[in-house]
């Protein structure tokens, strides 16, 4: 099955208007693989049927679902491992030393998807830094998709999802079995505040952030939007804060007010001191 050019253009305009995410030519396969299940779910004939439905009701429920399906990232617990090693071995110990007086840390996951990344960070904090239990930790996790936020808040994962990247000792310690599924324990869920946020829009007021995770999401935006997002993140970061990007992402040649620092087996990005 191939997707008609008209339908692809309609969908990429819709997704761009609603999320600023750019679906370039060549991403037709992505549209097909993400939207074919949705077409089946609503009972229309393929992508063309879905677009027909959207044209008659462009702001309806279906359009939300299309944007959701197109903006959701594949994710897993401890995805890529290295950023979490850097967090455990360097970033958190340094922040504990630097913020010992205030005993306060602010974290933000800007593309939380189905929640595995913020829960991975929460488990890392609990497992290795029990002293932080006495600190004031504000941990915000955001995503553009209401459906992903609902899933993240519930913290319920399938067997296939907990099989991916999650050390068994963490499964036993931080999850409860619910029939065939696994739910993150309530005390861990309560550490994180999940809310809706479109990265292409101005950020809501936030305390100065010590740690920002914004991984594997900039790749979806065009250069101008990337610049805007990074400038806003820089404004929200503490001058000594840390930004984590995805393995294929960088601030180099996008925002020259960040410096890149090697940190364990990965890189972190930090605002250049004025």
């Amino acid at each position: 099955m191939s997707i008609a050019q008209d339908d692809f253009d309609y969908l990429r305009t819709l997704v761009r208007q609603r999320s600023a995410i750019v679906l370039e030519t060549g991403k037709e396969y992505l549209v097909e693989s993400r939207l074919a299940p949705l077409a089946r779910e609503v009972g229309v004939e393929g992508i063309s049927g879905l677009v027909m439905l959207l044209r008659t009701d462009p702001r309806g429920q279906i359009s939300n679902k299309v944007v959701d399906a197109m903006t959701t990232n594949e994710t897993s617990f401890f995805r890529d491992l290295n950023p979490f090693d850097a967090l455990r071995l360097k970033v958190i110990p340094d922040l504990i030393a630097a913020r010992g007086k205030d005993r306060m840390l602010n974290l933000w996951c800007g593309a939380a998807s189905s929640g595995q990344e913020p829960y991975t960070i929460a488990m890392t904090l609990r497992e290795h830094f029990p002293q932080l239990n006495e600190w004031r930790i504000r941990f915000l996790a955001t995503d553009i998709s209401k459906e992903m936020l609902r899933r993240s808040r519930a913290g319920i994962y399938s067997q296939l999802e907990v099989n991916r990247g999650l050390p068994a000792k963490y499964l036993v310690k931080y999850f409860e079995q619910k029939g065939a599924e696994w739910q993150v324990r309530k005390d861990l869920r309560d550490m994180i505040e999940f809310s809706e946020l479109n990265l292409a829009q101005p950020l809501p007021p936030m305390p100065k952030l010590d740690i920002v995770f914004l991984r594997n999401v900039l790749i979806y935006f065009d250069l101008a939007t990337k610049r805007d997002i990074l400038a806003r993140v820089r404004g929200a970061l503490h001058p000594e804060g840390y930004l984590f990007l995805g393995g294929s992402e960088t601030t180099l040649n996008v925002d020259d007010q960040f410096r890149r620092e090697a940190c364990e087996k990965t890189f972190v990005y930090r605002p250049i001191r004025k």
């Binding site: 067997q159 068994a168 000792k169 499964l171 036993v172 999850f175 409860e176 079995q177 065939a180």
Partner: peptide, 11 residues
């Protein structure tokens, strides 16, 4: 085997 108790026992 997919029961929590079994994962715990194995560890």
């Amino acid at each position: 085997e997919t029961e929590m108790e079994q994962v715990r026992t194995a560890l």
